[in-house]
């Protein structure tokens, strides 16, 4: 395929993915908006007002970036895992496999679809947060870079999960038992400086800590960890996971006998 044909094929997958999650907006866009609004009301307003300052900011100001990032992570992941696994389950993944599209186009198309949903939900949650607090903007560039990289990383993770999944149970295991605990323990609701030194060290093994901290830095200008190290960690993980997903796709893991 020439470059123009590859661009058409790629944009076909991305448009189809966007069409899918906007068609079922009540399942994809509305729930995170409601859940995050509840977080803002309960943790930000009701409980947060009694907690006082966290890292030099009001508790609401502190948790808003973390909650936005949490939405980006869960939505970019779940979009790809559910869409690609459904394509496997219904058999329509074969539409792509018989076509001349290179495997990397399929992978990038799904990742971009996942990123689109993650970013769209992140934007919705950001707008909602403005009803509860005034957002500071320390570095728009850092916010954009970390949002793009994080959504790409978790969309890729969702793709790998979908390739390995053999049932709908397998699709929900990673988000339920790995992603959610890591997100909650990834300094969304607290600064790791509150933890004893040992647990601070353990927390640094949590990849989500790097994303949330860097994202928070983009808004508040403060971070639990060095943002350059954090960005390097995110880039390495994203590239590593992409290569892994592409290798699996080339071998036909879970999709070719």
């Amino acid at each position: 395929m020439n470059n123009k044909e590859i661009f058409i094929a790629l944009s076909t997958i991305v448009r189809r993915e966007i069409r899918r999650f906007t068609r079922i907006w009540a399942q994809t866009l509305l729930p995170p908006a409601i859940t995050m609004s509840l977080y803002f009301v309960i943790f930000g307003n009701l409980i947060g007002s009694r907690i006082g300052q966290m890292g030099g900011f009001s508790y609401m100001e502190f948790i808003v970036p973390g909650l936005i990032m949490m939405s980006v992570i869960t939505n970019s992941y779940s979009n790809v895992v559910s869409s690609f696994y459904s394509a496997k389950f219904q058999g329509n993944v074969e539409e792509m496999l018989v076509s001349p599209m290179p495997n990397w186009v399929i992978l990038v198309g799904y990742i971009m679809g996942g990123m689109a949903r993650g970013i769209m939900v992140g934007f919705i949650v950001t707008i909602l947060s403005l009803f509860f607090t005034d957002l500071q903007l320390h570095s728009v560039l850092v916010i954009m870079v970390v949002t793009l990289l994080t959504s790409m990383l978790f969309a890729t993770g969702g793709f790998i999960n979908a390739m390995l999944a053999n049932s709908f149970d397998d699709v929900s295991i990673v988000p339920t038992f790995i992603l959610t605990p890591l997100t909650y323990l990834g300094s969304v609701f607290y600064s790791i400086s509150l933890l004893p030194e040992f647990w601070q060290g353990i927390s640094q093994l949590n990849p989500i800590l790097y994303m949330v901290s860097t994202f928070r830095y983009g808004f508040l200008g403060t971070s639990d960890i060095n943002i350059f190290i954090a960005l390097a960690v995110i880039v390495v993980m994203t590239v590593g996971l992409f290569i892994c997903a592409l290798q699996m796709l080339n071998k036909g893991k879970g999709i070719r006998s």
């Binding site: 058409i8 094929a9 076909t12 997958i13 058999g91 539409e95 001349p100």
Partner: peptide, 25 residues
């Protein structure tokens, strides 16, 4: 193929147009 293998939620027209897109049309 022998088995129906299209996305049941997509419209007939979109199924064809999407498939054409996969071939870079």
């Amino acid at each position: 193929p022998q088995e129906f293998n299209f996305n049941g939620f997509e419209t007939v027209y979109n199924i064809l147009k999407t498939q054409a897109g996969f071939y870079g049309i």
